[in-house]
Design a protein around this nucleic acid. Structure first.
Lengths: 230, 230
DNA sequence: CTGTATCCGTGTTGATACTG
DNA sequence: CAGTATCAACACGGATACAG
């Protein structure tokens, strides 16, 4: 309907807080259901419609369309057509959209301390890789600079420690010094569980190639925050 | 066990993402409409039901009740009865709830860069005071330690710069070295606008008592982030 | 495959009225 | 003042149909 289209711009289709506070505006912009998870899926680079859908079971196509439209209008992301011969449409964050990484990480670290945190629930490949960047201890020895590869649920990633942070790219892990291969949930159990890496390998949660000592050292950089008693 | 109770409600109370990712859990916990703004109103200390309602026009009583119940069950806040003779019920954040300050500030700083940011919209007293903590330049000269008082929309606050951050309490400003008095929106124009403090005083946006030079210096510590070009 | 446009059942939200 | 009850409007998710 046309009246809906018109009001969709900034009018009454959605419920706005109409509050000058930044928190309220943030919730206006990315507080709708699924919005922040869609951003999360784009945080490691452009993705196609179907890739986003595949990573977010429960998100229906029409809602995804609405969110992509809304966030594009808000200046958070843009649609781009890949150059020939790919010719595919992809969605990518704007620079301002990428700046959502900090709020998302702050929220993740906070929520990971909840007693309701259930690590047996599904986890997307991107979500696992991002969790590494979120949860890595930044006080890592600067001399420890492993060359890392991952193949998570079949998707390739390449990573390195740069100034205490984990830099991640969606690229083939060929030639990396250490390569981790597995499914997101098993990998999460490996990185965030109490067992040593060797046990995870033995029980088939993860395959690791390369220097196992270095790999074990890398794994111990990750820990979930505890729920603060009160 | 508490975690069992929380996860037991998982399917019934509302729509959950059922995702192991921290971002998804965060949105499950505080992504419902109004939730984060209610937390914001509690960030400077316990408040009563009516105070929260008064600060959030548009929030209806039944939704406020639901949010308070939900966030209490989630371990984010608690109900407390003030000791006699006050005997009033107040809502206050748990320690974990107070830890939402960091995500809220990250979201605020991000959203303040939006071209849609409209500083003429309503602003609660608490929201203005928190915006000062959010937006203050942390690289302030450690030797600059003003003793600050505020009376925002009639509400008293006391503040000081402690290790580059603004510490704020809900207390009478009597005896403070510098006292700012005014309405939230006018104060925001004073702190975040381009005009010098003297002009804001002249045009009645704010009343200031105490050392005007120090007050001017304090005001220049605040600036809104710009929208990153892309 | 990549979306867009429907309808439909259901849960969430918001305004008003109401009770202790 | 501190909520509860009721009800209408809307958002969401699922299904389906359809277009490029």
């Amino acid at each position: 309907m046309q009246s809906e289209k018109i009001t969709a711009d900034y009018g009454k289709l959605r419920r706005w807080y109409r509050d000058a506070c930044g928190t309220a505006l943030a919730m206006d912009l990315i507080g709708e259901r699924w919005a922040l998870l869609i951003v999360r899926e784009l945080l490691l680079g452009p993705r196609r419609f179907g890739e986003i859908r595949g990573a977010l079971p429960g998100l229906s196509a029409n809602v995804l369309t609405q969110r992509l439209e809304g966030m594009e209008k808000a200046g958070i992301m843009r649609r781009r057509t890949l150059p020939s011969p790919a010719n595919a449409q992809v969605y990518e964050l704007t620079r301002w959209g990428y700046a959502l990484e900090e709020p998302i990480f702050a929220l993740s670290r906070w929520a990971a301390g909840s007693p309701a945190h259930d690590v047996t629930l599904p986890l997307s490949n991107t979500a696992f890789m991002l969790s590494l960047r979120t949860m890595m201890d930044p006080r890592v020895d600067p001399a420890f600079a492993p060359d890392l590869g991952f193949r998570i649920g079949g998707e390739p990633f390449r990573a390195a420690i740069v100034q205490g942070r984990l830099a991640i790219e969606r690229r083939e892990p060929e030639g990396a010094g250490i390569v981790f291969v597995g499914e997101p949930l098993k990998l999460a159990a490996t990185f965030y569980g109490p067992a040593p890496l060797a046990e995870s390998i033995r029980e088939g949660r993860v395959e690791v190639t390369g220097d196992l000592g270095q790999a074990q050292r890398f794994v111990t950089l990750f820990r979930l925050p505890a729920f603060p008693a009160d």
